[in-house]
Design a protein around this nucleic acid. Structure first.
Lengths: 282, 282
DNA sequence: GAGTGGTCTAGACCACTAT
DNA sequence: TAGTGGTCTAGACCACTCC
């Protein structure tokens, strides 16, 4: 019936307006958030269901639902179909630190450079955290003609061959990220016919060809997932992903990998450390 | 135009078993996406309104609305209250590159290290892009007792004074990010009583104290915004933000800034370049 | 006044699972 | 079987802008 019979204190005019009005869903969010932050709703407890909330707050179920979705978006709760909504992010974020480690850092829980230092050994990194990691190949690794984008980033022409690996990584059955990576075939083609076991690809590269990954560049954006990403990562449309591209150089300045990675944003924390380039002012 | 695609897919296999049992909203998304990608809906054109779509596709308005929200989440369209939904991201992403620039990069549109090289001169960086940048202080810069978190990151105790700056940066009236930054008062206290004009804070620091920002660390997560972030950045709850912390070191290893930054994810692209640390395997 | 997106209602059916 | 979240319907009022 009545859309707006509660009188909200009208705040300052916020320039050109988005919505300054606090919605009913927001009110529920604030109330639940307060309960979570002060401990009345401890970690891992189940929140009232959408139907219960709608009754408690006198709103429709869609509004209560919206409130829970907003809370999920802020990372305070996790929602599971059938089971309910629970306090707390579902897992700690996986720290991914890149760059050298500054001596002034205590770095208690940090695993610096994990990603590239133990390159390919996602498995070890996750096991070190007590997770059960798995890698699922979405396609069999294969030599393919270079796709235009991969060729561009690898500085090769499209008639050259690349090794492509396309895989999904999970921890405790929970999908973490999709990796689509390309490698020059002349360096890596052998791995298709050679059993290198669990050996990280770049360790193998060093032993076989004397090439070391010495430098990398990553370009990140955060966005919401498209439908195939949602399906593969088993996430809701409201859960953002971090999409990033990585280029890796060897000491001879050859590019030895270009990869496109889609990571579930809520499961990741990215850390970068870098020197600030100086410019000599004229 | 074509409006007989009201038929729900019965026996039309899109691809090998990929899109099975998609929702009605997803179907609309796929149709609109196809039209956008093949040019039937060119950049900047207005999409049908929610009400028009609901009629064309024979669904309720909420379902049509959901479809448009999903498209917005994928960055293919931009929605404006009152005006409508338009093809295209609202603005190009602002590239923020950190680290040295690899010579193998062409870097046509890159402004490398903009953020810290011309530190504080957000204004110049944006003007170079033809934008009209503005900085709005959400609080007056002031010396305050160090908040616990800031003190921790600056390696100071909470009884020491910090200079706090809390501001919102916009371009063409569009909010880009919120910056909450803290500086040791012994170094920076003066700027409150000295008019340094538009001079970047770190340029001033170098002239005044001979200290240079030489190294930085950033820790990023992507998530959805909380209510105050939504209000300040004027974004919808569905638009993710990138929240990151930055620590900046001077050449004497002092930490000269710690900042917490909330950036509208859709307007940013983060780029990092770093050396891969080597470990000598035993 | 017409039309937009934002919010909300009071229902509904579904797939799924824990009991 | 009862209860969960996921999806959907067919309406509604709002603030706002453009005409």
């Amino acid at each position: 019936m009545d859309q707006e019979d509660n009188e909200m204190p009208k705040g300052q005019p916020e320039l050109a307006g988005y919505d300054t009005d606090v919605s009913k869903a927001e009110n529920i969010v604030e109330e639940l958030k307060a309960q979570i932050l002060d401990g009345r709703l401890p970690e891992r407890t189940r929140l009232p269901s959408e139907r219960e909330l709608s009754e408690q707050f006198g709103v429709s179920r869609m509004t209560a639902r919206r409130a829970l979705q907003l809370l999920e978006g802020e990372g305070l709760v996790t929602r599971y179909p059938v089971r309910g909504t629970f306090v707390g992010g579902m897992h700690e974020r996986l720290l991914q630190h890149h760059g050298e480690e500054t001596p002034t850092e205590s770095a208690a829980s940090t695993v610096p450079g994990e990603e590239l230092r133990a390159y390919g050994s996602f498995i070890k990194a996750m096991e070190a955290r007590g997770r059960k990691p798995e890698v699922q190949f979405l396609e069999s690794p294969a030599l393919i003609a270079a796709p235009a984008e991969a060729a561009k980033h690898l500085h090769l022409s499209t008639d050259q061959l690349l090794l492509k690996r396309y895989r999904l990584q999970t921890a405790d059955k929970l999908p973490y990220r999709i990796i689509e990576s390309y490698y020059p075939a002349d360096l890596f083609g052998e791995v298709l016919t050679t059993n290198i076991g669990q050996q990280p690809l770049f360790d193998w590269l060093e032993e076989r060809h004397g090439l070391t990954a010495v430098r990398a560049k990553e370009v990140l954006i955060a966005r919401r997932p498209n439908s195939s990403e949602r399906a593969q990562l088993k996430i809701s449309p409201d859960a953002p992903v971090v999409a990033f591209e990585r280029t890796v150089w060897a000491q001879d300045e050859r590019i030895i990998e270009w990869a496109r990675i889609i990571a579930v944003a809520g499961l990741y924390e990215f850390s970068y450390e870098y020197d600030i380039p100086h410019h000599n002012k004229g």
